[in-house]
Amino acid sequence: MAASCVRLFAKVGWRVLEPQSHRPGGLSSLVADAALLGTRRAVGPAGARLRSAGLVAGVRGGGRALGCAVLLGGGLGLYQAARCSVQRHLAEEESKAPRAGLQLTLYQYKTCPFCSKVRAFLDYHGLPYTVVEVNPVMRQEIKWSSYRKVPILMVDGDVQLNDSSVIISSLKTFLVTRQTSMTEVLRCYPEMKSLNERGKEVTEYNNKYWLMLSQEETQQLYPDKEEQKEEMKWRRWADDWLVHLISPNVYRTTGEALASFDYIVREGKFSTFEGFFAKYVGAAAMFFIAKRLKSRHNLQDDVRQDLYKAVDDWVAAIGRKRTFMGGDRPNLADLAVFGVLRVMEGLEAFNDMMNNTKVRRWYRRMEEAALNHEGRH
């Protein structure tokens, strides 16, 4: 409607300014049409005829001045129509942004490497979230959930995401697709329950390292097919190998075990009694559990060497020509490895790793990327 008005007013103006001999069909009909367009709905057919007649008489008395006025009005109308169209388009695009109104609540243990992975992803992408620190003894904060592990991410208060890699894959899928709801994304990651070698029921997600994208979206995110394979390989490596090096290294000696539990109690959610019990009894228990983990995963007597080798293997995979495994920006593998390693900060194992491997430059750059939310755009 606005565009039609603008076009008609422009035609009227030019006809007024033309010499009389060049006006095909007469000006009266055009002006009458303009009047009818603006008044038909307001005053009805009879009123429209009266107003058009008056406007025709005015034109005959001062045509050129009226033509200028009509042209000016038409130009202003065109400007307003274009302005409204642009504003409406911007509003529609903003409403499609997945971060608008997305409410995220993360149930976690701060010192858990899997929880740290999720925080690394959320921080890097600039997704605001609320943290609920779970008491690791009673776990009352997640008593409402049949899934009794952390991390748990609640989306908009009613969609529950479990497992750190599923959380990351589903959120990334949501951010890329933009048109799909989180509920629909979650259907692509069905739970599969089975019994492990000890007869305990476990929940697994076979496709948790996949992003559920169209062919076009996959091509845009991974121009080279090998990039996607590499990312998935190292995300799996972080879960299946790197994370199992953390406990044997931070509980390597009784002194390190005490320092680690002092950090856990300080950063976690414990009562005074629970904190005291966890620090001394828990440290002693984890010292012996770390020994069992070393045997289970076939680690060397000096578990630091396994940590150093793993970290240097990661740096070698990135290579000298890339800042991150994702190139100029971190990919999901970068965020996973960074999240796992970050839980050792402030402990002896972390300092030894930084001093005896080549990971420092990459790690500090990852810190900066997460702190500045560089993945927002």
Rank of each mutant, 00 (worst) to 15 (best):
Q160R: 13
A238R: 05
K309F: 09
I152P: 00
R198H: 15
S52Y: 00
T130C: 04
W234Y: 12
D328M: 01
K143P: 00
S247V: 15
L8N: 01
T253Y: 11
E92K: 10
L27K: 00
E267M: 05
Q305S: 09
I318Y: 00
V86S: 07
N135Y: 11
V12F: 02
T130S: 07
A69D: 06
E345G: 01
L258Q: 11
S95D: 14
G44K: 06
R361H: 12
M182P: 03
K193C: 08
N249R: 12
V303T: 15
K200A: 12
A81Q: 13
L153T: 08
A285M: 06
G199S: 11
R329K: 10
V337E: 00
E267T: 15
L102K: 10
E204I: 14
Y129H: 13
V176F: 08
W314Q: 03
A349I: 08
E345K: 12
S271V: 05
F277I: 13
L153D: 11
S260T: 15
H89R: 14
S29W: 04
D334Y: 00
I152N: 02
R64E: 12
M232I: 13
T183H: 12
V303M: 05
P330R: 01
K143G: 11
M154H: 06
N355I: 02
A35D: 03
K208Q: 15
A100W: 03
R361E: 13
L171G: 05
R252V: 07
G326C: 02
P136R: 06
L66K: 02
I142Q: 07
I152W: 02
A81T: 15
E191P: 07
V6Y: 00
R7Y: 02
E217Q: 14
E367V: 02
P128M: 07
G319T: 06
L55C: 09
H297C: 04
V185E: 11
R88C: 06
A100G: 12
E226M: 09
E267H: 10
L17F: 01
Y124D: 04
M182Q: 07
N372R: 08
L8S: 02
V59E: 06
F9I: 03
A91E: 15
A349H: 03
V132K: 03
T39V: 01
A35I: 15
V150A: 10
S169I: 12
V118Y: 01
M286I: 06
R320Q: 11
P190W: 13
F121P: 00
R88Q: 13
G126T: 13
M212P: 02
G67H: 05
V176G: 04
D224E: 14
L71Q: 07
A257L: 08
M138Y: 09
Q219F: 07
Y147Q: 03
Q228L: 15
H244S: 12
D352V: 04
G126S: 07
D352T: 12
V134I: 05
R187A: 14
R266C: 06
I246G: 03
